[in-house]
Amino acid sequence: MEIVRDVERPDSAITDSFRDVSAADAHEAMDKSNAMAPRIAPVDAAHRLCGPACTVRVPPGDNLMVHVGSQVAEPGDVLVIAAETTRAVTWGELLTLNAVERGIQGVVTAGNVRDVAALSELEFPVFAAAVSQAGAVKETPGSVNVPVTVGDVVVNPGDIVVGDADGVTVVPKDDAEAVLDRATELADREAQTRERLANGESLYEIGGYGERIESLGGPALGSDSDD
């Protein structure tokens, strides 16, 4: 059993800025990396999360360390739970009520969750691999704030976790500022693209895909206005 309390977190201003960054843009800003597998999905797509990771590793069938992690986590943290099975609950209504009182921002778990109707009513962001009523015991030690792998992505304590309707992206804390700059640039370019689309251009034209097709030996299609 390992429980680490002293975790280095990114500057709060950087973390707060990521609240305006989509999971997709954060992923694209890291050369299309660090996107959790699609099985880690939102319980309610209306809820998004963003915050430094407080990681938890639990053994099969046991969620004792989730309670420990909930106690160790600081306000603003996101609990990231590495579980070896989806057949024992890692999160539910009572844990959510406790988390809300402690200022925890949300949960990402490779295990299962239950009480999903209550979670939606509480508007608490939860991303999970499965929904199931299967219960867990609280008997076996695990770890808190150690490196874990969830959704095929390595998560270190303090990494910034961004989750929305599209999924979850993990931003390494040491790269956070650079990733934020690139994600902001991407968002600005997308805004410009939306404006050009509204003015009648096509993505084919905006993206220069005609030249790309020609370079691959394909025919030149021209614009929609060509005869």
Rank of each mutant, 00 (worst) to 15 (best):
A198C: 01
S120E: 14
P42C: 06
A73H: 02
A45I: 07
A83L: 04
T109Q: 05
H27L: 03
M30L: 11
W91S: 07
A128V: 02
T140V: 11
G207M: 08
I160C: 13
A29G: 08
T90H: 01
R196L: 15
A165R: 08
G106H: 03
A23Q: 04
R19G: 12
T169H: 03
C54T: 14
A35W: 06
A24R: 09
V116S: 07
N112R: 05
C50I: 09
T86G: 04
D181F: 04
I81Y: 01
R114H: 10
E195Y: 00
L94H: 09
Y204A: 09
T55C: 00
A198V: 03
G106A: 05
F127E: 09
D188Y: 02
I213T: 12
L49R: 03
V89H: 06
R39P: 06
V148W: 00
N145H: 01
E177M: 07
V162Q: 05
R48Y: 00
E8Q: 12
I3T: 05
E205D: 15
R182D: 08
D164H: 04
G61W: 01
G210Q: 09
A23L: 02
T149V: 15
Q105P: 04
F124H: 12
V161D: 08
D115F: 00
T109V: 08
A88I: 10
P59T: 14
E93Y: 05
V107D: 13
L119P: 13
G103T: 12
D224W: 13
I40N: 00
G76M: 04
I40W: 00
A73L: 09
T15W: 02
P141E: 12
V78M: 10
E201L: 11
R39H: 11
P219A: 04
F127R: 04
V43M: 06
G158I: 05
R87E: 15
R194L: 14
I81P: 05
S70G: 13
V113G: 08
G208D: 12
A53G: 11
A45G: 05
G111W: 06
S12T: 10
I40L: 07
T140K: 06
M1T: 13
S143I: 03
G218H: 06
P42A: 10
S12W: 00
G92S: 14
G200V: 03
T55V: 02
R48F: 00
A41L: 11
L122Y: 04
V43D: 00
T85C: 05
S143P: 03
G92A: 13
R57D: 10
V108Q: 14
A129Q: 08
A191Y: 06
N199V: 02
S225V: 15
R9S: 09
V144C: 02
A176R: 01
A82T: 07
T90W: 00
A24G: 07
N156F: 06
A134S: 11
P125M: 07
L221T: 09
A99W: 01
E84I: 12
A46K: 12
D181C: 01
S70R: 03
Q192A: 15
E190T: 08
G222E: 02
A220G: 11
I104L: 11
V113K: 01
N63A: 15
E205Q: 13
C50E: 06
G106R: 01
L122C: 06
N34P: 06
R87H: 13
G200H: 07
E211M: 04
Y209A: 15
P147A: 07
V107L: 12
V179P: 08
A176L: 07
D20G: 09
T193V: 15
D224S: 14
D181K: 14
Q105E: 14
G222Q: 05
